[in-house]
């Protein structure tokens, strides 16, 4: 009896499965939604440059056919800047965790958004540093217990969508692994966007966030904890700032066009006098 083969399997690198994600991790769902989106758009991920930094999410690219850069913490957008400037026609997609892109890579993030670099950044927000064992991250909610905040997180958390909107990103949306249909639809839109696109995906980490913050390793508990706090943008628009506290707003925040960054190639020979 032959087993049915997942039609998305054709995008997965030979001999790389099973993957190394924990049972119940959201990274697999994000990979699935991304490939589904590519498949429906008929864009071939094996023609892309797919970048991961360091962390669980950063391992998503290594399962994909296509050119992959991996293994340095927080520098995904710096790599992408060099690639896009030298070879602007290359499609570049970044998979990054919240620690990778919002903490150690925070400076690159805001400047890539400001420049409107033509890349898609998929941020898996699992609210902690998962690969290193569940330490507090910039997107860990306040008061939550982690391995390095045993008395509760004393810091407020980042809203990465708000951050990049302010910095100048041209497509920004937030979704959750608990809404696979909407997630795939959002990724489809982001994949076709020209300019800096960022999709934050709220993703469950039962192994570290679940066990320490929520005292349960059951993936359903973390998933439910996330989904209970999710509201749509339409719902959020009707609420006051106080009422929105502690909620995750899902939906599209910006979607517009402005010139994309190509480096300084436009110049006027006659007017340039700086190095006389």
């Amino acid at each position: 009896m032959s087993q049915p083969i997942n039609p998305l399997r054709k995008y997965i690198r030979e001999g790389k499965l099973p993957h190394f994600f924990c049972p119940g991790c959201g990274c697999g769902q994000i990979l699935n939604a991304f490939l589904q989106a590519c498949d429906e758009l008929s864009v071939d991920p094996s023609r892309m440059v797919i970048i991961g930094g360091v962390g669980c999410t950063a391992r998503i690219p290594v399962y994909l056919k296509g050119d992959v850069l991996h293994g340095v913490h927080g520098r995904t957008l710096a790599w992408a800047t060099g690639i896009k400037l030298h070879k602007p026609q290359t499609k570049v997609v970044i998979f990054a965790g919240d620690g990778d892109v919002a903490s150690i890579g925070g400076n690159h993030l805001i400047h890539a958004a400001r420049r409107n670099l033509d890349v898609l950044v998929v941020v898996a927000n699992n609210f902690n540093y998962a690969m290193t064992g569940g330490q507090v991250a910039p997107m860990t909610p306040s008061q939550v217990r982690t391995m390095t905040t045993p008395f509760g997180n004393p810091e407020p958390s980042f809203d990465i969508c708000e951050l990049v909107v302010t910095a100048g990103a041209t497509y920004v949306a937030r979704e959750a692994t608990g809404r696979p249909v909407q997630l795939e639809r959002t990724l489809k839109k982001a994949l076709t966007h020209e300019g800096f696109a960022l999709v934050e995906v709220l993703s469950q980490c039962p192994t570290n966030y679940g066990r320490y913050a929520l005292r349960s390793g059951d993936p359903a508990v973390t998933l439910k904890w996330i989904m209970d706090r999710c509201i749509t943008k339409a719902q959020a628009d009707k609420l006051s700032k106080e009422e929105k506290a502690g909620k995750f707003v899902l939906g599209e925040f910006v979607d517009f066009k402005r010139p994309i960054f190509c480096g300084s190639s436009v110049y006027d020979l006659e007017s340039c006098e700086c190095c006389e």
């Binding site: 850069l69 520098r75 710096a78 790599w79 060099g82 030298h86 690159h108």
Partner: peptide, 25 residues
């Protein structure tokens, strides 16, 4: 292509990115 990076880390990784894309960086 000329880039003024946001820091030295941007510069050095942009070099690797461009170089792997075929540039002399």
């Amino acid at each position: 292509k000329f880039l003024q990076g946001e820091d030295e880390l941007c510069s050095i990784y942009a070099l690797s990115g461009a170089s792997l894309a075929g540039a002399k960086a």
